[in-house]
């Protein structure tokens, strides 16, 4: 049985933990709002971009002159997995779920005799994958100094990825990130970015015949690298929103748990205080009677 003093200390310490988790939850909520706004602001660009690209890809895609970024290198031997996670922990299953998805995919590919290379974005994913996949790491992007992810960050990653592609280091690139659905639900997603795949929304009626300047291939060659950057940017934003959402939920739970624990400890504290008083009284009464 812990002493009264121990219990009191314990309650105090849980109370300060609760204060911290509560504060973290509120910070995460504010950041989530900003991250969602950023994701919202980026949507028109990505949507228009994909629409145009889908149209272009459909008209050029099948020809032999199609750029490699679109048609692929003709093999799928070497896979590059770009694993995007957070720089910080304390956000529930956020990092673990991406790492798990990436690990499963990597093991599947390895089992099929493919070669796997991993580029990690964000510290946490690297730590989690280090144990069994460290041999496959080819690079790491550190975003811990970045307060707000901007397009610049995305295009830097894209430049790195494209340079590797040009150098023939891999055939297929896949992005791993958490898609934001709501505060309580983030879906780990794998998205193939090279060779580019566009969801062709088949609304044939709306498709217009465009004049292309300079020409279809020229535009496609110019746009495909941008497309990679755009997709990475979208993923980064989704990830940022998901991270804050996950952290908010995790911290909300933690706050509630701390509250429960304080209640329990207080009950125990009161009981033992009463027990101590009763014991004292009995002792006094017994002493008086003995006289």
């Amino acid at each position: 049985m812990p002493s009264l003093k121990d219990l009191k200390n314990r309650i105090e310490s849980v109370k300060s933990t609760r204060k911290i988790t509560k504060a973290m939850q509120m910070v995460a909520a504010a950041k989530l709002r900003r991250a969602q706004d950023a994701a919202e602001a980026a949507r028109p660009y990505a949507e228009r971009f994909n629409a145009v690209m889908a149209g272009l890809a459909a008209s050029v895609g099948s020809s032999d002159s199609a750029p490699k970024l679109l048609s692929g290198t003709g093999s799928d031997k070497v896979h590059l997995l770009i694993v995007m996670t957070a720089e910080r922990g304390l956000c529930g299953g956020f990092n673990a779920s991406i790492a798990k998805l990436a690990r499963t995919r990597a093991q599947e590919l390895l089992a099929n005799g493919k070669e796997v290379k991993i580029l990690t974005v964000g510290k946490k994913g690297r730590e989690q994958l280090k144990r069994d996949l460290a041999d496959h790491f080819v690079g790491h992007v550190d975003l811990s100094e970045v307060k707000r992810v901007g397009y610049v960050n995305a295009s830097e990653i894209a430049r790195d990825v494209l340079a590797r592609f040009e150098a023939g280091e891999f055939d297929v690139a896949t992005l791993f990130f958490n898609e934001f659905q709501s505060v309580i639900s983030q879906v780990p997603t794998a998205q193939q970015i090279i060779p580019a795949s566009f969801e062709t929304e088949e609304d044939e009626g709306a498709s217009t015949l465009y004049d292309y300047e300079p020409n279809e291939e020229g535009i496609l060659a110019d746009l495909l690298p941008r497309g990679v950057a755009t997709q990475i940017f979208t993923a980064l934003l989704e990830n940022a929103a998901s991270e804050q959402g996950a952290r908010m939920t995790a911290m909300d739970n933690a706050t509630r748990n701390a509250g429960d624990m304080i209640d329990k400890l207080t009950t125990v504290y009161n009981r033992s205080r009463q027990a101590a008083i009763t014991t004292e009284l009995i002792e006094i009464i017994a002493g008086a009677e003995a006289l």
Binding site: V52, L56, T208, L209, Y210, D211, Y212, E213, P214, G218, I219, D222, L223
Partner: peptide
């Protein structure tokens, strides 16, 4: 400012995509 030279788009322009 198009890649191949400046152009001005006005209503009812022919559908064009330019870098």
């Amino acid at each position: 400012p198009g890649a191949e030279g400046d152009l001005t788009a006005m209503p009812d322009h022919a559908p064009t995509i330019t870098t």
